[in-house]
Design a protein around this nucleic acid. Structure first.
Length: 481
RNA sequence: GGCCCCUUCGUCUAGUGGUCCAGGACGUCUGGUUCUCAUCCAGAAAAUCGCGGGUUCGACUCCCGCAGGGGUCACCA
């Protein structure tokens, strides 16, 4: 069996969103299933659309997600260059062969004339085909006009690795442009040549190309090249389920997910499960499991909607599964500035307390703020509390005074704090909902926090008592809360 | 409009003629885990399998038609 070689071939016109990266992921998986090759190639034949910096951005996106390519623009390889604008000689040579074989001709019309043909066809309610206007005696191609493929329309029945058996008639095949008047090839021509020269075995690409494939098949024939296996992926749809995910409609850059603290392994797992499953009830797949169980024929033929809630859940799941040291290392760039004054041990303890409630790392500051900063007394936390607001305020203050006295004798270990909190529960006769809420609010001034004893232990004795004092002072009779 | 693809809980999906009055996961709701948030656990609601015809003893599964959605008809990829 020939070597499996797949490629991801974006045009450097911007960033990659979830839909784009999925195509890359599937191509990468197919290559990794055997000891095949995954290749990155830039399709930059439209100079006008090229975006500065897009190449680096694209490469970074792939690498950040662990989709490491074996051959590519920056690392080279045996079939380079991997940038189409540097392969012009090759396209010209192949175009020459087609011209010699009578399968390509110069297009003598101006764009306006072609547009005229198109509009006429539209008015007469018939499909526009350039080949209906094929010039009888085309001029010699001098590279200043477009070079067109002289098609040989026929019916094709082919097997797509995802879509299954597809049949199309001759009406879908036309004389498309091989080389533009600016000397650059079109995608339609260039990718066929490149895939052949780079020995690509599987083309995995989006559904937008489905209707052009008969044209490619016709070209392969004219070139006497056996087409690679083709796999057409359905689109990833936007959250509204209406149309394909697109930058225009605000689809997020995958690098933004990384920047917000989504884990590459969670992103990969999530993206793979958009329109693919292994037939079992397994939801969480490690990278290796994905490599072993993935198959193109189990890719869904219908478009999958992008559900960010599911991504959020999956990311939280992966965060919880990390060991604390690993998590600590990954989260280093996300702490709030004030945390810089604290040591690793302290931060690690804090992190341990919030790990199970972290959905993505950018949430870290909001979740841990009070561990690093003394927040001002927030009266609303008591006034708006469903239990505390019913209790007499002076009584709450006295309760807090007795708490302060008791805790002053604690070593602030979790065990000691736990037993003291239980003592206080008994001696005060208060319900946990009242006592614990009061202490929690006094020591954190936050609407939510981790378990009380653990939180106090990490906060430490001095800080906890000081905050209780502040709260008591704020509750002095006469003072308004 | 022509051509092509698609159509199972809100969402991602399992399902290849009977074991499916349709299973799992996310989300939602309820209860439990000495306070909150989260986790975890238990449970619930949630698809007349797009619609209509066939074929068959029997169809989510096969066939035909229709409707809806999407893609494409560029000197963009």
């Amino acid at each position: 069996m020939p070597e499996i070689r797949t490629r991801f071939a974006p045009s450097p016109t911007g960033y990659l969103h979830v839909g784009g990266i999925r195509t890359a992921l599937f191509a990468w998986l197919v290559a990794r299933q055997t000891d095949g090759c995954f290749i990155l190639r830039f399709e930059d034949t439209d100079k006008k659309r090229e975006v500065e910096g897009a190449r680096d951005h694209l490469m970074a996106s792939l690498l950040q997600l662990g989709l490491v390519y074996d051959e590519g623009p920056d690392i080279g390889g045996p079939y380079g260059p991997y940038i189409q604008s540097e392969r012009l000689d090759s396209y010209r040579a192949w175009a020459g062969k087609l011209i010699d074989a009578g399968r390509a001709y110069a297009d003598p019309y101006t764009p306006e004339q072609v547009q005229g043909f198109r509009e006429l066809a539209q008015k007469e309610k018939r499909p526009f085909l350039f080949r209906d206007h094929r010039p009888e005696n085309p001029p010699v191609w001098d590279e200043t006009m477009p070079l067109r493929f002289k098609s040989d329309p026929k019916q094709y029945t082919r097997t797509d690795a995802v879509m299954g058996t597809l049949t199309t008639g001759p009406e879908t095949i036309d004389d498309f442009i091989l080389i533009k008047s600016d000397g650059y090839p079109t995608y339609n021509f260039a990718h066929v040549i490149d895939d052949y020269e780079m020995k690509i075995s599987h083309i995995i690409r989006g559904q937008e190309f489905l209707s052009s494939i008969p044209n490619y098949l016709n070209l392969y024939e004219a070139l006497d090249i056996t087409p690679p296996v083709m796999a057409t992926m359905p689109h990833v749809l936007g959250p509204d389920g209406k149309k394909k995910l697109s930058k225009r409609d605000g689809a997020k850059d995958v690098l933004d997910y990384i920047r917000e603290g989504y884990l590459p392994e969670a992103l990969v797992n999530f993206i793979a499960s958009l329109g693919w499953n292994d037939g079992t009830e397994q939801e969480i797949f490690s990278r290796d499991e994905l490599i072993h169980t993935f198959s193109l024929d189990r890719v869904q033929r219908s478009g999958a909607r992008f559900d960010e809630q599911r991504l959020l859940w999956m990311n939280g799941h992966y965060i919880r599964a990390l060991n604390l040291d690993d998590l600590f290392g990954r989260v280093s760039a996300f702490w709030q500035p004030e945390a810089g004054a604290y040591g690793d041990d302290y931060k690690k303890q804090v992190l341990g307390l919030v790990q199970e409630r972290l959905k993505y790392f950018a949430e870290l500051p909001a979740l841990t703020q009070f561990f690093f900063t003394d927040l001002p007394v927030e009266p609303e936390l008591i006034e708006g509390h469903k239990q505390l607001k019913k209790v007499d305020r002076e009584m709450l203050r006295e309760l807090l005074v007795s708490v302060r006295e008791n805790l002053a004798g604690s070593d602030f270990s979790v065990d000691d704090l736990t037993s003291r909190l239980n003592q206080l529960l008994e001696s005060s006769g208060q319900k946990p909902a009242v006592l614990f809420s009061l202490i929690r609010i006094a020591t954190t001034q936050a609407p939510a926090s981790p378990a009380l004893a653990e939180t106090l232990a990490v906060l430490g004795k001095d800080r906890s008592l000081a905050r209780i004092d502040t709260q008591i002072a704020a509750m002095q009779p006469g003072d308004s809360l």
